[in-house]
Structures are given as C-alpha cells and as structure tokens.
Amino acid sequence: MKSKINLVSQLAREIEADIGTRDMNKLFLESFLKSIKSFQYQNIKDLDTQYKQLVHVMSNTKPKFGILISCFRDLYKDYTKSTLHDQELITLTINKIQELLEDIDNQKNLIIKHSEKIDVKNKNILIHDHSHSVHDVLINFKKIGQKFNVIVAEQESEKTHANIEILHEANISFQVVPAYMLSHICDNIDIAFFGALTLKNTLDFVMDPGTHGVISELHLANIPIYNFINTRKFSLWESSKKEHGVFIHKHTRQHSSKPIEYDRIKYSHDRVNAKLFHRVVTNEGIFNIKKLKENFQEKYKKSN
C-alpha cells in the first residue's frame, strides 16, 4: 500500500506542477471513470475492499491534496450509503464522477463571476504562479472589456512560459520581471493575484514555491493581494504548523563548470499565512480573513 501511495503522490505532485490543482483533480476523476468501468472485481466484498483502498491512497498522498480528498471521500460516502448492489453501485459511482466533473466547471464559473467585483480598471496586476483560476479571471476581465496590464514575476521557466503563453493568446498586455527584482517596481504594482493548492486548518495556504517571498514583499509594500481558491480545496483535517503539506526533495548536484558536488534541497510548495492576503476569492464569494476563517471552520466541523 505504501508503494502505491508513493506512486500516486509522485504523480499528483508532477501533474499539479504541470497543469495546476483544478486540472489535476479533473484528470484524476476522469481516470477513475475509466478505471471503475474496466475494473473486474470478484464479488461485492472485493469491490468494497478495493474501493476503500483507493480512497485511502487518494487521501494520503504526500502532500495531501484537499480537492482530491474531498472528491474521493464524497464518492465513497455515496457508495457506502447506497443500498444498491453490484453493477448498480458501479453505475452510481460513474454518475457521481460525472456530476463532480460538471461541478468543476460550475465552480470555476462562480469564481470568475465573483471576481468581477474586483476593481482592476487601468491597474497593473502582478501574477507569479501559474494558477488556472487566475488565468481564467484575467481572460474574463479582458472579455468583459476591462483595461489593465499584467506584470509577470518570473519563476521556474516552464511556469513563467505557461503564463506568457496564456496572456499572449488572450491578447492581454504584460511585462515580465524576475521575482527577485520586484523591489524596483513595487510602486508600479496596484494589485496582485495568486492561486492556492489548499488551505490548511492552521489558516496557511499551500502555494507554488517562491510565492512566500513575493507575497511578503508585496505585503510590506501594502499592495492589495488577492488569493483565488475553490472551497473544495480546503484541507478539512487537523495539521500542525510543522506539518508543511510540502514535499522535500533532498539531492546532490554537480557544479556546472567545477568538480564540486553539493547537497541541494528543493521544496514542492510554499506555505503562506492567510493574514498576508487582502481578500480571498472563492466559489462561495469574496472573503476577508475573518469570514474565510468562519467558512473554513464551519466546513471543518461538518467534515469531522
């Protein structure tokens, strides 16, 4: 079981880094749709056991992904509650997966709709991570005729390129600045948009690596910072401050021109406290930190 959890964890980390949390969740659900359709179980007990194992694997990835846990637990809850048998149970799961997939688009549209309340007219918006929610929101602003400019804080080249491609395709004007040079242009930034993987019960957001530094700098400069997150991504379980929700990759690296080998540590994500954000835009509305906390705690209570 441990090796299976490790395999899924690695896949989840890689896919999340490539296409973002929302599309990763979609990919996992679509995969489950295919898996359940071709699964050949011996009897209903076998189906129960293996379904439970799958949910256990999906709920224990390193780091844990709130959105995966939420979806797979929902599926399993419906499955266990049902009085149906055999093939009907499979059909029930298939229908539920399809519902969840539709729901992903609905929730995306809700975030976009709520974001329209943000005033971006003639503003310079800073982005850093390659959050699909932020992309969708910016594309929508462009569509509804808002005039604004984007400043891309450069990070890993692939993610920066993904941002550039999206902005270019949507015909949104933008400039790119290395993230470590932001201090020079802080005065030009009016507002900043970020996306998050999850929100933990410590009220820390798990975000793209490098985000903490950028947000801290913007916070010091009193620039309004907005975070976009689907409430399904909330991590509705107990976690300590020490438990980062971050995967640590220790490895050695060779100097590019000298015969020097050195230890290097990479972290999969950053942890950023909610108090650094001006507002959090969700599918349920735009929250200040107090409201966010209340919303989280309500969900947390329901879930536990």
Binding site: I19, L27, S31, F32, Y41, Q50, L54
Partner: peptide
C-alpha cells in the same frame, strides 16, 4: 491488472499524463 482498482487508477492517470506531456 484489471482486478486491481488502485493499479488501474494509477495506469489511467499515467496515460492521461503521457497524453498531455
């Protein structure tokens, strides 16, 4: 591996990953 749900799920995730990669 059609009788192992977790393995099937891993395989299907991988296929989708390969498709976009």
């Amino acid at each position: 591996i059609t009788n192992d749900l977790v393995k099937l799920q891993i395989a299907n995730i991988l296929i989708k990953k390969i498709q976009y990669s």
